[in-house]
Amino acid sequence: MLNIQDVTHAFDEHTVLHAINLTVEAGEILCLLGPSGCGKTTLLRLIAGLEQVQYGEIIFDGQSIVEIPVHQRNFGLMFQDFALFPHLNVLDNVLFGLKSRRIPRADALKRAREMLSLVGMQHYAARDVSQLSGGERQRVALARSLAPSPRLLMLDEPLGSLDARLRENLLTELRQIIKSIGLTTIYVTHDQHEAYAVADRIAVMNVGHVEQVGEQEAIYKRPHTSFVARFLGLDNIVPVENMNGSCVYTALGQFEIQGQADALLLHPLGIHIVNPSQDEAIYGVVTERRFQGERYRLSLRHQSGIVLIFYVNADDTQSIPEVGDQISIGCKPEFIVPLKT
């Protein structure tokens, strides 16, 4: 559906996107996930046409769109701060795109009211946008983007300016609404949990590069790079000191892996407490023990100084180690993930 090929972009000699290649399938919700300044918003603006493509190609439906002016692309974009028109009321905001496309008044009204119902704002049609709360604005902005039936919907941190609880509620609803229409969607966020909840697939971006594309579970379980691992909160990263065939040597000992690696991730999901006599056991001192409800989060410091995080279910029949305890842990081989830097 949407094909981004070799797109490179610079602002004043400062390159913000490096040869981006990305595909979005029809009806799919793709999440661009990355820290602020990683270029995800710029990429969105290039697809929207709000920035002129400098280098590369963007194909939509088999056709290059880089020369098509913004207003003729029929894409929808929902801004982080919603950008509702302050001089128009709720209904007129939603009608705006329909009028621009010269849809007859009666049809446009019907469509606008439908969209307001879809987002649960049908009773707010005559309200001034300044009278709306953050969550209400978000709904109106969504209705406004959806009304002209865009061929592609883009959402730029659509929940960024809302408080945590509201976010949680809107998140599920947002996915349901988009999926009920079957829209091809690009969703930009810096919050992994938002991405997990909304996306079909996630593209993790860092300083102008797409680091990894995949479904949420695949990305979380097998990150390809140290950046992706760290960004997802996986900090059990051990530098590789030496490699010999499939055998890698690290400060924690030696591990067997497939392929090349600059570092290893000992995924918290694979770490469990083992008997000290076991071959691959890693010894250390418990330095932190944090109760998190359904589980405990434990930090173990190895004598090399490397700290490993892992979790123990709170309902575990064994006793949970205390801070200061000397214990040994092991990691299942499928959770030893080779990382590139």
Binding site: G49, V70, H71, F79, A83, G97
Partner: peptide, 13 residues
């Protein structure tokens, strides 16, 4: 982003 939103909604310059 206000004029940009309008352009996205199909308004000519």
């Amino acid at each position: 982003n206000i004029p940009e939103a309008a352009r996205m909604l199909g308004a000519s310059p």
